[in-house]
Design a protein around this nucleic acid. Structure first.
Lengths: 209, 209
DNA sequence: GTCTATATCGTGATAGAC
DNA sequence: GTCTATCACGATATAGAC
């Protein structure tokens, strides 16, 4: 059922001869696998996501997944790799001055989480971190280095690390309730309404003594 | 290390004739299994925790776990059952008046999470909810009925449900960061220090317009 | 580059001996 | 009441055919 006959072959998924049109065997399949892995990990978490499931979603054989990426841990690492770029936005949040930093931080949070391309790997991390130590380490590093350390140096409060982490914990909570577990009414609320209420909280953590 | 037989017999685990000394076969083992299940689910989450692992931790055979509780889902339900009691504290939080409700809520949160007996089943729920739909449903019900609905009726703000859930989301986030993923410095901070900063936030969500 | 076949293991669950 | 034995399944991972 997989392959590839020059005649009127079955109208299935990625058929044989993947020369240049449909699947473009080389980097094309690699990216399809990667995208499938990201989606599987984000929806099911590390443990429940399987190599076979990823392979099926990508329309390839499971052995091919191993061939490209190695072990399951390697696949996971590759799937969430992109995530470590966009945290630059946090820097600007505070570097632009403490006035309105709470609102800028809240807006940055939603710009990341409302965009499927950046939300998917974050979901994969948060869904995996609660049980998979490797993912937990990544989440810790994310909260610490990408949020806390970028912010703390510019804060003019006692114990800035602690303040920054409280702000981060609130955002983690919103991510859990809105995007992971999906509790209403927050899950369907307009981001602007949330920003209006959360921004002052973040602002207070970052600046108010 | 478990045992207790009159002779010097083999130093294994629960051997035959479990009459009355060591394990007290009947309700004794049942409770040991339940305690082991709670611990396994709380540490590993639903998917990673196994019936065999629970049985081994309880010092019994895996078939016995099924014999007492049925399917894995049934075991999970039994393990977290206790959790649905202590939410009465939330009622008092707000029923005692809106003055200081934020601080009372924060203190109630830590009284539950700092106590291992109440923390363990909550960890089991939160660790399982991100991937296991049955647990997610329980968490949703917990946030909704035990927190939001108890509080909203007494709030004097527009959209009280939304306010209550924002407060709840912050507490979920603190639970994640402090107890589940364990990010420093929050994971080791003195609860009083956290209360001092978080209580005003909760108060603002519950009352301030 | 892609898939077939398989080795090896752990899982949930059940039947039934004692 | 407790454990032995087993079924049926799905997992990761590898070797190797084509």
């Amino acid at each position: 059922m997989t392959a590839a006959n020059p005649q009127g072959a079955a109208p299935r998924r990625g058929r044989g001869r993947p020369s240049r049109t449909e699947a473009e065997s080389g980097p094309g399949t690699r990216d399809r696998i990667l995208a499938a892995a990201r989606e599987q990990f984000s929806e099911r978490g590390y443990d429940k996501a399987s190599i076979r499931g990823i392979a099926k979603a990508a329309g390839v054989d499971s052995a091919l997944v191993h061939h490209y990426f190695g072990t399951k841990d390697d696949v996971f690492a590759a799937a969430i790799e992109v995530t470590f770029e966009p945290a630059q936005g946090v820097v600007d949040t505070v570097a632009d001055g403490l006035d309105g930093a709470g609102e800028r931080l809240a807006r940055f949070f939603f710009s990341v989480w409302e965009n499927p391309a950046t939300r998917t790997p974050l979901l994969a991390i948060i869904r995996s971190a609660v049980t998979h130590e490797a993912a937990a380490k990544i989440l810790r590093a994310f909260v610490m280095r990408r949020l806390i350390e970028r912010v703390e140096v510019d804060l003019e409060v006692p114990d800035p690390k602690f303040r920054a982490e409280l702000a981060a914990s609130h955002m983690v909570g919103i991510a859990m309730v809105r995007y992971v577990v999906k509790v209403e009414p927050l899950a369907s609320a307009d981001p602007e309404e949330i920003i209006a209420l959360v921004a002052p909280t973040l602002q207070r953590y970052l600046t108010e003594t």
